[in-house]
Design a binder for these strands. Structure first.
Length: 346
DNA sequence: AAATCGTGGGA
DNA sequence: TTCCCAAGATT
């Protein structure tokens, strides 16, 4: 039987005063539990994504699909388009799969193990939903918690090898009561106080328990492995316009930008595949420089206008291209293609 | 189990 | 400018 430790008490007391107000969050100590759908939707969107970036998307999704049943019945292409720009598109595909499974089950599982079995829900998200939405005592470990715990205990072993120990130590400071508030408090602390660089230890409620603070080197934790150099690849995107519409394709579900609408173009590489969708007089209208997680891409944009549409493919009205749900890379390429086309028409 | 998978904002 | 990195999951 675990009892509250000084750390959890210090932190939850701090959270009662300093909790951020967020659209998907209920105030600390609220009697009413938050809607599991809201918690789940926000947690999926927040994976590797900043609160600021999620805000508008959460509002859009909640407005368009107010319940998990509504989301389960959503048109997949519409949902993918609504996710466009947020990144990590496997999350959107898993979102639908998860909603359909939850609808089939008649509701969200109320346990960490039950949640963990759903698409797109891993160890962190299962623990977070169990704690926040269902009040279960779960050990919630995200990058914030890793950083805070690494400093509290001055863990010198580098990530990711230190993860098992971090989790075990997080377990020792997780309270039985208000586990959801405790988890959110850890994340607020990591976001606003125990930051990666220039931590604001003068505003931290845990300095009395923090070994790294005592050592005077909190910024030294967590220890991380050296980063690898990013290779550069090249690619080509074709802006093919005809009768006021542009040819779009859907990328395969696996791989980069999986399942998303895009401009046609071959595989990225060095050299890139270069075959255009149709023979035409192609003009080079610009290059999009885009940086992904593990490589940088230079995407050359080629444009052409043809009098009649070949039958195959999805032709999207150029005037409504913003609504096609192109991921950022192709939205930028499309902007170049469209600008060039309009310039030519003058 | 190391690699893969986006994007935008802050320092 | 450049680098870091944010409420990770999947294979």
């Amino acid at each position: 039987m675990l009892v509250d430790t000084p750390v959890s008490r210090l932190l939850v007391d701090w959270y009662d005063v300093h909790a951020r107000t967020l659209p998907w969050r209920t105030p600390p100590g609220a009697k009413v539990r938050p809607d599991p759908y809201r918690v789940w939707l926000s947690e999926i969107m927040l994976q590797q994504t900043t609160v600021a970036a999620v805000g508008p998307y959460f509002a859009k999704f909640k407005g368009r699909w107010p319940t998990v049943e509504a989301l389960a019945a959503a048109d997949e292409a519409e949902l993918m388009a609504a996710w466009a720009g947020l990144g990590y598109y496997a999350r959107a595909r898993n979102l639908i799969a998860c909603a359909r499974e939850v609808a089939r089950l008649g509701g969200f599982p109320a346990t960490e193990d039950g949640l963990r079995a759903l698409p797109g829900i891993g160890a962190y998200t299962a623990a977070a939903i169990a704690a926040i939405a269902f009040g279960e005592r779960a050990v919630v470990v995200d990058a914030n918690v890793e950083r805070v715990v690494s400093r509290l205990f001055a863990i010198s072993e580098p990530l990711p090898g230190s993860r098992p120990r971090i989790r075990a130590l997080a377990d020792t400071i997780t309270p039985d009561a208000r586990a959801g508030d405790f988890a959110q408090a850890m994340m607020d602390l990591g976001s606003a106080v125990c930051t990666p660089r220039n931590p604001r230890c003068d505003a931290c409620p845990l300095t009395s328990a923090c070994t790294a603070y005592a050592q005077g080197n909190p910024e030294a934790y967590p220890v991380k492995p050296a980063k690898k150099a990013k290779p550069r690849r090249r690619g080509i995107a074709y802006w093919l316009e005809s009768e006021g519409a542009v040819l779009l394709v859907r990328r395969p579900d696996k791989g980069m930008l999986g399942g998303m609408r895009a401009l046609p173009g071959g595989e990225w590489g060095d050299p890139p595949e270069a075959a255009p969708p149709v023979p035409a007089t192609w003009r080079h209208v610009g290059t999009v420089e885009h940086v992904f997680t593990h490589f940088a891409l230079s995407l050359d944009v080629m444009a052409a206008d043809i009098p009649a549409r070949p039958v195959e493919g999805e032709w999207w009205p150029v005037a409504a291209i913003e609504e096609a749900g192109l991921p950022t890379l192709y939205a930028r390429a499309a902007a170049l293609g469209r600008a060039s086309s309009e310039m030519l028409a003058l």
